[in-house]
Design a protein around this nucleic acid. Structure first.
Lengths: 113, 113
DNA sequence: TTTCTTGCTACTAAAAACGTAGCAAAAGGA
DNA sequence: TCCTTTTGCTACGTTTTTAGTAGCAAGAAA
């Protein structure tokens, strides 16, 4: 079997299901990948080591985590520092867009019941 | 071979990588699935038929689209009406959380260049 | 009736995610 | 220094998810 390199979605280039190159499409592509949002979420409070991140994501396998971290670093949303992986300023900013996600999710939960 | 049923993430139940049952985790699980965010996005303006949605998502295959629609309907975010699939009130509300996504994505694009 | 369109299922192939094992480098003792 | 941990990560075989193509049944239009 042949290796397939995981394409990094970047604004300005066509992504899955869209040839426009619009930044929002790159963002939607990136965020639609498994674990991306979760990783950002887990880093919201403080930096975490590779292994701590793994734990936080329910023992996520290292190969997948490493892949995602590569994508997040390429996207300049996460970055590796002395105390582990941390959100960049950009990443923190993106996460604020979702700041009320918890609140909304609670409401959603009630509506579904 | 055995069928594997596509688990629908619901608040109150454990999801991938989290056993807490917290609504926000169910939401993160759901949104981390490919095409979910995109479909919501494409429906932001007006209802679309199954086939129009397929086109909008770059000829997304019907099997995948149908699966995702099932999940979105189970989550009460989308619902099938006379003129096709449309966001529910809940779905519209979730999308407003992402309303400034386009703007932020533009900024992101500039930062990456 | 014939011709389209629409929503969707069946089925196979390809890609992504999982899970486990484990290694090399750095850190922390003793 | 030598030994023990911890850490970040790669390899690789298995399982799950996603993709892609074909096509059918039901309804609308001609």
């Amino acid at each position: 079997m042949v290796e397939s390199k995981p394409k990094l979605p970047k604004p300005g280039r066509p992504v899955r299901g869209s040839t426009t190159g619009k930044p929002v499409m790159a963002l939607i592509d990136l965020m639609g990948r498994r674990w991306i949002l979760r990783i950002l979420w887990e880093l919201r409070g403080q930096p975490l080591t590779f292994r701590a991140l793994q734990e936080a994501c329910g023992r996520l396998s290292p190969s997948v985590l490493n892949g995602r971290l590569g994508e997040l670093r390429a996207a300049a949303l996460v970055d590796a520092g002395d105390d582990g992986y941390a959100l960049t300023a950009l990443g923190r900013e993106l996460l604020t867009q979702f700041s009320s996600l918890t609140v909304w999710a609670e409401k959603w939960a009630k509506a579904l019941r």
